[in-house]
């Protein structure tokens, strides 16, 4: 069991521990984790795709050695898939089995009222926690050792779903009509929500969360990220390729390359045994970092300049 209390004693310590798990981050991100842990508030993470929003939650779960429970959002996601559902099959099966014992239960009962009263004692069993199928959110709440709950791409879910989340996020509890309110175990989960900003998240939800915006990293930070993730890459090439990517982000592209693309590219270049960046090599591997033909064509014409710039910048 990791000593979470000690890990989370300061922002710097969190940053170092994240780094030890190969997640290189700014102090802003470490501060977010620090606050989330101490204030017990969910973090809403926004930012362009591929800057490590989901990765942060995964790394924190590794770091704290807590289970990661992930809920991927999509249109049409509802209560039954996110919070809980009754085990209808089990209920039906038990009803069938118990049909035969029904006579025993009702034996000796005089009149209708008494029979119904006996059945009442009996019937409630079917809507107890035994028959409850916990879905990710409820699982996270009931987790004994406290879990990391990742609600991924909340912007893909419907507006109604956001409202469903409010109770969980602010009070760490769920109300189930048949049973009552279920509260979090002694250790409430640390909640991460991510959003790609395809639509505006409602104020009500934002109000209950810390809001962290992860932008593209700057040159130095990205260098360190690549260094941590692809340690085998020669330093010279690493400097050049990161400079190239940074340059690329200043262009008007349909989809800017993110960190995940930088890392993929670093692996690609490593595989091709290259030691420094040249225009032909870049042209051949451009499809790793740019995901639209349109973008590739746009960049192609300026490739030589960009490459030489990147080479110069590092000298």
């Amino acid at each position: 069991m990791a000593d979470i209390e000690k890990m989370a004693e300061s922002v710097e310590s969190i940053r170092l521990h994240l780094e030890a798990h190969n997640y290189i981050c700014s102090t802003q991100i470490a501060t977010a984790v620090y606050l989330a842990y101490h204030l017990q508030k969910p973090i809403l993470i926004e930012g362009p795709p591929g800057v490590g929003k989901t990765e942060l939650a995964k790394t924190v779960s590794e770091m704290f050695e807590r289970d990661l429970i992930r809920l991927q959002c999509y249109e049409g996601l509802d209560e039954a898939k996110a919070i809980y559902e009754w085990k209808y099959g089990k209920q039906l099966l038990y009803t069938q089995v118990l049909k035969e014992t029904l006579d025993d239960v009702l034996q000796g009962a005089k009149g209708f009222t008494e029979s119904v009263a006996r059945l009442h004692d009996f019937g409630d069993i079917f809507f107890s926690e035994e028959f409850l199928e916990p879905r990710p959110l409820l699982q996270a709440l009931k987790h004994e050792e406290g879990a990391i709950l990742l609600i991924d791409e909340i912007d893909k879910a419907d507006h109604e779903f956001e409202s469903l989340l409010l109770e969980i996020l602010s009070d760490f509890q769920v109300s189930i009509a048949e049973i009552g309110t279920i509260k979090a175990s002694a250790i409430p989960p640390i909640v991460f929500l991510t959003s790609n900003n395809t639509r505006e998240i409602s104020d009500a939800l934002k109000r209950r969360c810390l809001h962290l915006y992860i932008p593209f990293p700057d040159l130095e930070l990205e260098q360190r990220i690549v260094e941590a993730r692809v340690p085998e890459i020669p330093p010279e090439l690493r400097r050049q390729m990161v400079a190239f990517i940074q340059e690329l982000r200043t262009l008007d592209l349909k989809k800017l390359p993110a960190i995940s693309e930088t890392i993929d590219w670093a692996r690609t270049l490593l595989l091709l045994n290259s030691t420094s960046l040249d225009a032909d090599m870049v042209r051949d591997t451009l499809n790793v970092i740019l995901k639209f033909q349109e973008d590739i064509e746009n960049v192609d014409s300026e490739l030589t300049t960009l490459t030489s710039n990147a080479r110069k910048a590092t000298r």
Binding site: T27, Q28, T31, A32, L35, I43, L44, D203, K206, R207, C209, L210, H211, L212
Partner: peptide
């Protein structure tokens, strides 16, 4: 940094 996460959204 702390306040920037709590106040502006």
């Amino acid at each position: 940094q702390s306040l920037s996460m709590v106040l502006p959204k």
